[in-house]
Write a protein that binds this DNA or RNA. Sequence first.
DNA 1: TAACTGTATTACTTTGTTTAGTACAGTTAT
DNA 2: ATAACTGTACTAAACAAAGTAATACAGTTA
Lengths: 120, 120
Amino acid sequence: MIQLNQRDPRPIYEQVKENFKNLIFQGVIRPDEKMPSVRELAQKLSINPNTIQRAYRELEQEEMIYSIPGKGSFAASVNMIRDNEIRDLMQTFTQTADRLLDIGVSKEDLIRKIEGRSRV
Amino acid sequence: MIQLNQRDPRPIYEQVKENFKNLIFQGVIRPDEKMPSVRELAQKLSINPNTIQRAYRELEQEEMIYSIPGKGSFAASVNMIRDNEIRDLMQTFTQTADRLLDIGVSKEDLIRKIEGRSRV
DNA sequence: TAACTGTATTACTTTGTTTAGTACAGTTAT
DNA sequence: ATAACTGTACTAAACAAAGTAATACAGTTA
């Protein structure tokens, strides 16, 4: 389910976080579905439970999952996740746009950039 | 000229970098003007010349300054700096836009965001 | 009660930052 | 030519920060 890359320079807990983010986004882990327990996953990956715990703690802070002591950790609802990501991306979007406008790029240039994108 | 903040958790070379970026952007250091030498500045700030050297090296990689062995380090031209910043911001802008489009936000929504900005 | 769950605390290890010392080559002014 | 600058490179060591490991505690479930 989760796969660690030895050559990846990032810390393990970051790789674990990204792995789960992808799994949740792709729907492999459904909303409210139970995640592997910290000990179970740690054993499978041959790493320390604390490392998993850190990944889970940060995923919870980012509202990707929620944890209940004694019960387990569970994937948040996709709507929640989607809304959170849109909120964060929108903030980056407007901040970047403001900086570009400040520096002298015109609104028209930015709009043309958007219109030129080949997305739906 | 440069001021270090003891409570700032960032490494010293990062603080030095930011200080100079601001000075150059604000025009306090003019294009092609000589920057303090690594040894001189290190002595003034009571830190190691190597730390300044690292700041200068990275500023040069970011094309904020240019260095000539034997002569000194000099601020890059504002046009160069401006172009570089626009290039970087544009990349962030389109990447963020693409991600938002992927996730289901419409082009119209993004364009409206731009138009709603209170910049010139 | 036993086996599971997340969490907190403390220590150890690894990595990154900073300092220090030394050296080399180009520039400038004496 | 020489002395005093300049940037750059390299190695080693001291120190700080980040990451990981070990252990213990409390809640949940069967």
